[in-house]
Design a protein around this nucleic acid. Structure first.
Length: 444
RNA sequence: CGGGGUGUAGCGCAGUCUGGUAGCGCGCCUGCUUUGGGAGCAGGGGGUCGGAGGUUCGAAUCCUCUCGCCCCGACCA
């Protein structure tokens, strides 16, 4: 895109309501604008990042054997009365009445709906295992929304739900999601650490939170330092036994504040990392908590009706945008990891109107398109300083800087946002250097 | 939900105590000069001072009510 025709309302100063870095930068870089407390408009830059994150999540979910569906945002209260949560959930659930005075609600989560889909449509053990997911907006009427999109009331979430015939099979489904999550977050440039978690109101006996460390994290977390650099499992056969991978990741100590074992922490000594973390994913196994009361059953191979074991698996997609920025920024702005960046390359024309810079920029822009690297071309008639600071703020991973000075020597500059490192390169080699440094998926 | 703060132009703020009809910086528009890290000069547009009611000759300013937003805590993907 040409920057001159792209809607990126950047701000030089920080709106006073924004306290933490990610919130400030999301406003300043023109990703979002607040609509009401905890509710945001996503502008073009923010939307592109959201879509990139979704894409990674979707690919990894599909690889792990989950199938995408879309469930309604507005749900019938009746289902929640069946599961018993209509009264339990409290004022966090936004309740509305339709014109016939029926109890409806804006879904804060979808266990009830997916269980309803299951019981109405799945009859046989042959259809199991089944894992259905969606990437959709949810609403939880938080008492105190804060930190921008990190704790919004409306948020985009990937939620998957697994159905299995036995606990062992359910455990495998759980492990599949566990491994998929490690890969998913790694592709976004995050080292997420699985931590044993309290299942809370969703219930169940097996649960892990995926935490990314950041100063502004909402909860205190503790873990063995090895987990910070532990390599992510490469291509996995999701049908194989994944327990060794899960065991490997869960053998090192890691716990959130509530479950922190101080004695164990002491044992670790200097190996213990004490930090703050942001929860970006949460997986649960909760057995028959919903299938039982809602009467979801399938015929077993022996012809008996059996109640499936279930799990649910969430990723906070919109929260991830904030979490990634918390983990990846400096004083000048955002530093997008390659795979989620709204554009891979920022092309800066330092002297718009100069025939040489215009020509070279035009050619580079065309070639970037050809090789499939998304680029944002700053073709505005602004001063160099404005363009530099703006591009740093927006945080695209690479900048190609084209100015009359360099062109006299037949060169342009390639700048890596993360390191600030600049290379002066001949015009016709800049793209090959650039593509040579492109990561693939980050995983093989 | 307890405690604290705040609302004046797109953003950041002053003005409120002590009432006299709204101002500064940045951004925006025009022109000229500039042009490798948020330029200079000149001109211009933009505000029911969150809302309602009251006091007063007169209210951004005083009084009452109300709404929004932010922060700390408790709670939570």
């Amino acid at each position: 895109m040409r920057l001159s025709r792209t809607f990126i309302p950047t701000l030089k100063e920080t709106p006073s309501e924004a306290q933490i870095a990610s919130h400030r930068l999301m406003l300043r870089a023109g990703l979002v604008r607040q609509h009401a407390a905890g509710i945001y408009n996503w502008l073009p830059m923010g939307t592109r990042v959201l879509r990139n994150i979704e894409k990674i999540v979707r690919e990894e979910q599909n690889d792990a054997g989950a199938q995408e569906i879309i469930m309604p945002t507005i749900q019938s209260g009746e289902l929640w009365k069946e599961s018993g949560r209509y009264d339990d959930y409290g004022p966090e659930m936004l309740r509305v009445k339709d014109r016939h005075d029926r109890d409806m609600l804006y879904g804060p989560t979808h266990e009830e709906v997916v269980t309803d889909i299951f019981r109405n449509n799945v009859r046989s053990y042959k259809d199991l295992p089944l894992n259905l997911y969606q990437i959709h907006w949810k609403f939880r009427d938080e008492v105190r929304p804060r930190f921008g999109v990190m704790r919004g009331r409306e948020f985009l979430m990937k939620d998957a739900y697994s159905f299995d015939l036995s606990y062992e099979a359910a455990r495998h489904s759980y492990n599949q999601m566990f491994v998929a999550y490690l890969r998913t977050f790694a592709r976004m440039g995050l080292q997420a650490i699985p931590m044993k978690a309290d299942p809370g109101p969703i219930g169940g006996d097996l649960s892990h939170e995926f935490i990314v460390l950041a100063e502004t994290g909402e909860s205190a977390v503790y873990c063995h330092k090895d987990l910070l650099s532990k390599p992510i499992p490469p291509v996995v056969d999701y049908a194989s036994n994944l327990q060794p991978i899960v065991d490997d990741w869960t053998s090192a100590y890691a716990a959130t504040d509530e479950l922190h074992d101080k004695a164990k922490g002491k044992e670790l000594g200097d190996d213990l990392i004490s930090a703050r973390g942001i929860e970006i994913g949460h997986i649960f196994h909760f057995g028959k908590k919903y299938s039982e009361p809602m009467g979801a059953q399938v015929a077993s191979s022996a012809g008996e009706m059996v109640t499936p074991f279930m799990g649910s698996y969430g990723i906070g997609v919109s929260r991830l945008v904030g979490a990634i920025i918390e983990a990846c920024h400096d004083d000048d702005g955002i530093i997008w990891p390659d795979m989620v960046a709204p554009y891979r390359v920022g092309l800066i024309n330092l002297k718009v109107g100069d025939p040489d810079t215009d020509k070279v920029c035009g050619e580079l822009y065309g070639k970037l398109k050809e090789i499939g690297l998304s680029a944002l071309y700053d073709d505005r008639a602004e001063r160099a300083g404005v363009k530099f600071s703006n591009m740093d703020l927006i945080g695209l991973p690479w900048q190609i800087i084209v100015g009359p000075k360099g062109l006299k020597e037949g060169t342009v500059e390639l700048k890596r946002r993360a390191t600030g490192e600049r290379q002066t390169l001949p015009i016709d080699s800049v793209l090959s250097v650039l593509t040579g440094s492109q990561p693939g998926t980050g995983l093989s």
